[in-house]
Design a protein around this nucleic acid. Structure first.
Lengths: 128, 128
DNA sequence: CCTTGACCTTCCCGTCACTGGAACCCCTAT
DNA sequence: ATAGGGGTTCCAGTGACGGGAAGGTCAAGG
């Protein structure tokens, strides 16, 4: 498979796949003309990566998850730890965003949004 | 005021304040020795920026909000539009994160997390 | 007067995970 | 021969800073 085939199959842009090779997440063969040649196993890895990235795992997490996936003698506890930490991180981010949303939604509601200059949003930002 | 004073007062790191000057958000005076000298109005601007950044506004949004704040003939509708768009963005991000959280929390719960290799998390990432 | 230490300055590189674009090579069809 | 649609590398930029080096400035103490 050439890069555009595996790009279509995995949903990843070709640029991203090249980047993943550059940082050592996949190591496709090369054909005589210098083109990358992706085996099925490469495509599977990339699919794995695409899914993990969609769940918000960092590249380093992905690297570790991939290594665990390849390691038949892994302990599921190691996988679980990575996922649980990431879950905590996501929950923290959700909480942060929810706090912003609450404040903002309050301010937006209070603002008349007409052509007059009085604005509770600016008043709040200025320290009211 | 020197930079460390205004840093303490606003809670912004000195590095960030220099960066804000570099991108034109504040323009403190300079004293003869080259040190930045911050007037009260500069400190107020920086406080405004710190609050807006805490609400997740981008630097460009901050720039626009600051301009509206300084413009006594502004229409509150302009402020509201920026805030409402940002609110939409935040809600979208919360939804994305919540979807990740739901999937992840499901997978983490299903994973035994012991020393055996069987792992629903990896199974899911691999496409089950 | 000299030194120490706490400031301040600029400048450059690194972050994270790509994305865009330039310049160039390869292969097939017309 | 040419046109097009692949592929390749390399370089620069993104957002919003943070780290750290190299060096100037200032007030206090010996």
């Amino acid at each position: 498979m050439n890069i555009s085939d595996v790009a279509e199959q995995t949903g990843l842009p070709a640029k991203t796949i090249r980047y993943y090779e550059e940082i050592g997440l996949v190591t496709p063969q090369r054909s005589a003309n210098g083109y990358r040649v992706f085996a099925e196993s490469d495509a599977h890895k990339l699919t794995f990566l695409a899914r993990a990235r969609n769940l918000g795992f960092s590249i380093e997490d992905c690297r570790n998850l991939l290594a665990l996936w390849e390691d038949r003698s892994r302990a599921s506890a190691d996988v679980r730890r990575i996922a649980a930490q990431h879950l905590d991180d996501i929950e923290r981010r959700i909480n942060d965003l929810a706090a912003m949303r609450d404040t903002l939604s309050d301010l937006v509601q209070k603002c008349s949004g007409d052509d007059r200059p009085d604005c509770p949003i600016l008043a709040d930002l200025a320290g009211s």
